[in-house]
Amino acid sequence: MTGKSCERVIILGIDGAGAYIKEADTPHIDGLLQSGSATYGAQTVYPSNSGECWGSLLHGVGPEKHEAQMYIKNNAQMPAGPVAASLFRRVKAAYPNSPAGAFVCWAPILTGAIEPLDGVVKHAAPDADLVPAIGAFIKEQPDFRLLFVQLDDVDAAGHKHGFGTAGQLQAITRADAQIGEIVRALAEADLLDDSLIVVTTDHGGGGARTHDHGSDHPKDMTIFWGCRGPGVVAVNELVGVSIMDTAAVALHALGLPLPADWEAKLPEGLFL
């Protein structure tokens, strides 16, 4: 890092990759996190399904509090309250004039896990089309404060081929290349050095059922989590990380206080 302050947070999520990233060829993720910290032993929430997991990442609390899964199941819009405010709502409250972006393949996230907010670009598309749209957003709105990305093909490959199989590992490598494209767009816009970037996944799979997830089996519950950016220490192996902690890391990096009722915490030793 160059000593710059953090101007923005980018969360790059790979759906369904669990800790299988360790077994796949991921040169772009490896290079990105070379000066940061990571763990293959982070934990997600139960039940280990995407609505519960992405909701917990975005809200800093567990599924029983954020209720994203309920809104997603009912194809409903998450209201501005009384559920726990999302990371997007908190960042927009602090930086109302700065844009933010949520780019996903799984469209229900945009309504079921994120409230209706002014100044938040929401875009849903297949992974292959999503990445160019993210590049355009970075180029056209470089003053953004928060960017959340959810790539879905890895989860689809797990359901098709089996989680942890060669077919899914190949999908992880393709997702790694797409992350490389996003990082390249950040570098070309001169936004890389003063950005905090988290790379993570929402859940694993192949525990109770080879082609599914949702159980409390370690293969379903264990995920990859990595971070780099201003103030981040290069730790050999983080311990005790929860998917919920992503929200705490994002707020801390942007100089915002952590809500007292959050379950999210700052991973020990992550920051200077």
Rank of each mutant, 00 (worst) to 15 (best):
M1N: 04
K4Q: 05
K4W: 00
I10R: 01
I11R: 07
I11Y: 06
L12V: 01
G18C: 11
A19C: 08
E23N: 09
E23P: 00
G31Q: 14
A38R: 15
T39E: 11
Y40S: 05
Q43E: 14
V45I: 14
E52S: 15
W54F: 15
L57Q: 13
H59F: 11
G60R: 13
V61P: 13
H66M: 14
E67P: 06
Q69H: 15
K73V: 05
A76S: 12
M78Q: 14
P79F: 11
P79M: 10
G81S: 15
A84H: 12
S86D: 07
R89Q: 15
R89S: 06
R89A: 15
V91T: 05
V91N: 04
A94F: 07
A94R: 12
N97L: 14
N97K: 14
S98F: 12
V104F: 04
L110S: 00
G112W: 06
A113M: 14
I114A: 08
P116G: 08
D118F: 09
V121K: 05
A125L: 08
A125Q: 03
P126R: 04
D127C: 01
L130T: 04
V131F: 03
A133C: 01
F137E: 07
F137K: 06
D143S: 02
L147W: 04
Q150Y: 08
Q150A: 05
V154M: 08
H159S: 00
K160R: 05
H161A: 07
T165Y: 02
A166M: 02
A166K: 02
G167F: 03
G167C: 00
Q168K: 02
Q170L: 06
A177N: 08
E181S: 12
V183G: 02
L191E: 03
D193W: 04
V198E: 06
G207R: 05
R209N: 09
H213E: 09
S215C: 13
D216Q: 13
M221T: 13
M221K: 13
M221G: 10
R228I: 01
G231I: 03
A234M: 03
A234G: 04
L238W: 10
V239E: 15
V241E: 09
S242Y: 11
L251V: 10
H252K: 15
L254Y: 12
L254K: 08
L258K: 09
P259T: 12
L266Q: 12
E268Y: 10
L270D: 09
L272K: 13
